[in-house]
């Protein structure tokens, strides 16, 4: 099993389109006055000054798998038909996670208490989209590493709490990723804190088998 790769600062382009879309903006329909736009852009800028994207990823080989579970080389077992199906014939997986940090969450809380909900909502949307985009960045990073081996990550990734991949798995991923090292905690309900923290699983496939499997599924 390879060691955890930590990313202490992830630099990504701000996903403005996704942020506006998350806030309900519809191109050609939503009308924003110049002053309102400046205010919202100011909130986005403020959010960016508070967000510190950090992440982690770990490459682990699969020891055993069946249609309903996956046993990793470190003994961790994921029971999920959905995940097994997505992993397909992969022999390895990548566990990954990212967080937007504490500062932005604290500011959202303060804004809510101070009746500054407009800014709080924008901060919330920016943090959500930034942390999602940072997972995309981690995927790009591993794809870059895997390119020399003629491998890549599956295009889909799976997160605990979706389908039959129950939220309890978040703790297993959290432990394997040594997520506490980037300031993330997990509570008894398997919720990551700070709130804008995410984890995911993706498979590692040869470029050939991945493309073949995807075309089959189409």
């Amino acid at each position: 099993m390879k060691s955890v790769v930590f990313f202490d600062s992830i630099n990504i382009s701000v996903p403005r389109r996704e942020i506006f879309s998350r806030l309900g903006y519809r191109k050609g329909i939503t009308r924003i006055g110049k002053d309102q736009k400046e205010v919202i852009e100011g909130y986005i800028e403020y959010a960016l000054s508070l967000i510190h994207l950090r992440g982690a990823g770990r490459r682990i080989s699969i020891k055993e798998k069946s249609f309903s579970n996956i046993v990793l080389s470190n003994g961790v077992v994921f029971e999920s038909k959905n995940l097994s199906k997505m992993i397909g014939d992969c022999e390895e997986i990548i566990l990954m996670g990212a967080t937007a940090g504490d500062d932005v969450i604290e500011s959202i809380r303060e804004d809510t208490e101070a009746n500054q909900l407009t800014r709080g909502v924008v901060l919330d949307a920016v943090a959500s989209e930034m942390v999602d985009a940072s997972l995309d960045w981690i995927v790009d990073y591993f794809n870059r590493e895997l390119r020399r081996e003629n491998k890549r990550l599956t295009k889909s990734r799976f997160s605990a709490g979706y389908g039959d991949f129950i939220l309890e798995n978040q703790k297993k991923i959290y432990d394997v990723l040594e997520f506490e090292r980037i300031g993330v905690k997990i509570n008894e309900n398997y919720i990551l804190m700070p709130e804008k923290s995410v984890t995911a699983v993706a498979g590692i496939q040869s470029r050939f088998s991945d493309a073949k499997r995807e075309s089959e599924s189409e």
Binding site: F20, L23, G24, Y25, R26, I29, T30, R31, I32, Q36, V39, I40, Y43, N115, Q116, L117, T118, V121, V122, A125
Partner: peptide, 21 residues
């Protein structure tokens, strides 16, 4: 306006906060 998506969330809330104030 929000229902018609001519307003999006920050506008809705800014209006609501103005109303509240």
């Amino acid at each position: 306006l929000f229902d018609k998506k001519e307003y999006f969330l920050p506008q809705l809330i800014a209006s609501a906060e103005t109303m509240k104030k």
